[in-house]
């Protein structure tokens, strides 16, 4: 979209227009800031001051490294590691208050479909979601993924998280802070390094 469409020049001095036009160009060049996954919603936890100057990645989902931390921190870490491992094996219960069905879009495989289970809004205003998709093809490239969006007037406007799929059915937990009543649907798009902007829609409500 052009500067005239978004900002306009009416009532601006030449100097003001030049300044805003420069910011406009920088915004266009920078592109949208990426949405942070739940894994990045909180900073890594620095170790105690008395500990060596290193950072404990207590929030990381990557496998293996939690075990190293557990070894280093004796009993406390043993308990923490047990709790972590236990929670991984048995995810906390998810109580859905609303279910939204999704079906394959025109270009998607005929058998593809999905369900978005939405839980009660949490204390800080996020809607936890358990998204289950089936029949979507696995990503063609390592850097490709699917993205869930909320739509307004049929347009995907609010990113809700990204995920990859494996096998017939994939379940992922996502969380969004938006006022859901302001939107009218959901879509899933394919995204990848070759795509500039929104990818093709594969699932829709």
């Amino acid at each position: 979209m052009s500067f005239d469409d978004i900002v306009g020049t009416e009532g601006l001095s030449r100097e003001e227009e030049a300044t805003l036009r420069r910011v406009h160009e920088l915004l266009v060049a920078a592109g949208p800031p990426p949405d942070l996954s739940p894994d990045l919603s909180l900073p890594p936890v620095p170790a105690e001051e008395s500990d060596p100057p290193e950072v404990a990645f207590l929030l990381r989902r990557r496998r293996g490294r939690v075990a190293v931390l557990a070894l280093a921190a004796a009993l406390a870490a043993f308990v923490g590691g047990y709790a972590f491992g236990h929670s991984k094996g048995k995810p906390a219960a998810f109580t859905s208050i609303r279910m939204v069905a999704m079906h394959g879009a025109a270009d998607a495989p005929a058998e593809s479909h999905g369900v978005i289970n939405i839980a009660e809004k949490d204390s800080v205003g996020n809607w936890p979601m358990l998204v289950e998709v089936s029949g979507l093809p696995e990503q063609a490239k390592q850097s490709s993924y699917y993205e869930l969006w909320l739509t307004h007037n049929g347009k995907a406007v609010a990113p809700c998280g990204s995920f990859r799929v494996h096998g017939k059915t994939t379940r992922v937990r996502l969380s969004v802070p938006y006022a859901l009543k302001n939107f009218d649907g959901w879509v899933v798009t394919t995204q990848g390094p070759d795509q500039n902007g929104l990818g093709p829609v594969v699932l829709t409500t």
Binding site: M1, L27, P32, H152, N153, K155, V157, N182
Partner: peptide
């Protein structure tokens, strides 16, 4: 974010946010 990266026009942004177009501008 809505003006630059949502694909909505400014009029659609106004409608989406429930505010006048002039306020969006």
């Amino acid at each position: 974010s809505l003006a630059y990266w949502s694909g909505l026009s400014q009029s659609e942004v106004a409608e989406f946010l429930g505010i006048p177009l002039g306020t969006v501008k």
